[in-house]
């Protein structure tokens, strides 16, 4: 056994054990570790935004290099803080409107291009799509399966008509595809969490206690 002498390893290990103690039940150790985590994470956030954004992009160019155009983001940004002054708190809507409006605008064509047109291109039955499987004639079968699966999945999420008749049949097929998809995603997520747990145990038993190598 070769116990670590690094104080940071001890801190990280004890806090990790406090978090894992939640498996027994919620307890004061877990709550303490949870609050410390939130505090330090937010402290890091402040540091990051100050040293990586506010200083190099705003304050240094504006106050040291005299880039007066930056007075605009400075004033609009300061309007966020009016939220704490009840009489003029409505002014907080101005930076929110600019930020949300611009990104929402950018999102519309980007979503149409990447998430609608490209996905439809990959789904429709064309010769390049059949060949993309590199599976010979089976490529046609897999492409048709994906095509039917997408249509049936969409019909399952179509709630403007009652799921009877043709839509009833397609939505039943759709739920089969959806459940297999969710199952695959679930399996992958569980494996990711298990690998994190293995990493955590390796840290506690290896780096901290030195029981395993």
């Amino acid at each position: 056994m070769n116990i670590s002498t690094d104080p940071w390893v001890w801190i990280a290990s004890i806090l990790s054990l406090a978090i894992l103690s939640f498996l027994y039940k919620e307890n004061p150790f877990f709550r303490a570790a949870e609050h410390i985590f939130l505090g330090v994470a937010n402290g890091y956030l402040v540091t990051f935004y100050w040293h990586r954004i506010l200083m190099p992009i705003l304050f240094r160019p504006l106050f040291q290099q005299g880039d007066l155009l930056l007075i605009i983001p400075f004033i609009i940004g300061m309007l966020y803080l009016t939220r704490f002054i009840p009489r003029i708190s409505w002014l907080v809507r101005i930076p929110i409107a600019i930020y949300m409006g611009y990104w929402t605008g950018v999102l519309i064509p980007a979503t149409i291009q990447a998430k609608i047109i490209k996905q439809v291109q990959g789904t429709i039955l064309t010769a390049p799509n059949f060949q993309s499987w590199n599976a010979g004639t089976m490529g046609i079968v897999w492409s048709v399966t994906v095509f039917i699966g997408v249509l049936c999945t969409l019909s399952y999420f179509y709630f403007s008509r009652e799921h009877k008749g043709v839509i009833g049949v397609t939505s039943r097929v759709g739920i089969v595809f959806v459940m297999i998809g969710f199952g695959a995603a679930f399996g992958y997520t569980v494996m990711a969490r298990i690998s994190l747990l293995i990493g955590k145990l390796q840290y506690l038993l290896g780096d901290w206690l030195g029981i395993i190598r």
Binding site: K115, C152, V178, I180
Partner: peptide
Amino acid sequence: PNVAAQRGIVL
């Protein structure tokens, strides 16, 4: 099947 379901959901 996973791609079919995910694509339907993404659309």
